[in-house]
Simulated assay, not measured.
Amino acid sequence: MQMRTALDADPDMLDGKERKFVAEIREHGWFAIHVGADEGRPGFTYTTGFCLKFGHPELIVFSLPLQIALDTFWHLDRELEVGRRIPVGVLSSDIFTNAPAMLLPVSQRHYADHLGWSRWFYGGNGFECLQLVYPDRDGHFPWSSDAPVDIRAAQPDLTEGNWSGLCAR
């Protein structure tokens, strides 16, 4: 059974922003949404359409400049296009050329605060999302006991908690 999405909606029922959003996904298979930092909270960028195009969870990344986030998502688009998958919960050097990164499952309790357009597109929380997490310049991930406060603040934990158990390691 194919997933019903906003692509199935009557275009006359969509407002201008919604029609533009759907048009981008029709053209490219996915779209990235950037939310700027505010009130001491970091900015973030996330995808909508990876689930539909690739059967792969959507992605969210915090505190990267928009162009770097987009370049990263396009890189991952090309990887997924040829059938390559990045393992979840494992350090990978296949995402960035200059640093390892990790994909971790996002808890659905964070969807409403961070994935509004994806929730609209999919008609609720019936999709998966992975958080792309990267280290600071010294190699500290946010869950590291020696991670500075700024890297922890720049990348909030959207997992079920405790960075999916990585803090205990």
Rank of each mutant, 00 (worst) to 15 (best):
M1P: 09
M1T: 11
Q2T: 13
L7I: 06
A9Q: 11
D10V: 12
P11M: 03
M13Q: 12
L14N: 04
L14W: 02
D15V: 10
G16P: 04
K17Y: 06
R19S: 05
F21V: 01
F21Q: 00
I25Q: 05
I25V: 10
R26T: 05
R26L: 06
E27R: 04
E27N: 00
H28F: 03
G29S: 09
W30L: 08
A32M: 03
A32H: 07
A32T: 07
I33C: 03
H34L: 00
G36Y: 06
G36F: 06
A37F: 02
D38N: 07
G43N: 04
G43D: 05
F44T: 00
T47L: 02
T47F: 02
T48P: 01
F54K: 02
H56S: 15
P57K: 10
P57L: 11
E58W: 05
I60E: 05
I60V: 15
V61Y: 00
P65G: 13
P65C: 07
L66H: 10
I68E: 15
D71E: 13
D71W: 07
D71G: 15
D71I: 05
T72M: 09
F73G: 00
F73S: 00
H75V: 02
D77A: 07
D77N: 14
R78G: 15
E79V: 02
E81D: 14
V82K: 12
G83E: 07
G83F: 11
G83L: 11
R84C: 01
R85K: 15
I86M: 11
G89P: 09
G89E: 11
S92M: 03
S92H: 03
S93C: 00
I95T: 09
N98E: 12
N98K: 10
P100V: 00
A101E: 06
L103E: 08
L104P: 06
P105Q: 11
V106S: 14
V106H: 14
Q108M: 12
R109I: 03
H110C: 08
H110R: 09
A112K: 05
L115Y: 03
L115T: 05
G116P: 01
S118Q: 08
S118H: 04
W120N: 01
F121C: 03
G123A: 06
G124I: 05
N125F: 04
G126P: 07
F127V: 10
E128N: 14
C129V: 15
L130H: 14
L130D: 10
Q131P: 14
D136S: 13
D138I: 01
G139E: 01
G139D: 01
H140C: 14
P142I: 04
S144H: 15
S145N: 06
S145E: 12
A147F: 01
A147R: 04
P148M: 03
D150Y: 08
I151N: 08
R152E: 12
A153Q: 12
D157R: 09
L158Q: 09
T159I: 04
T159C: 08
T159H: 08
G161V: 13
N162M: 12
W163R: 07
S164T: 10
S164K: 02
G165V: 12
L166A: 03
C167G: 11
C167F: 05
A168N: 12
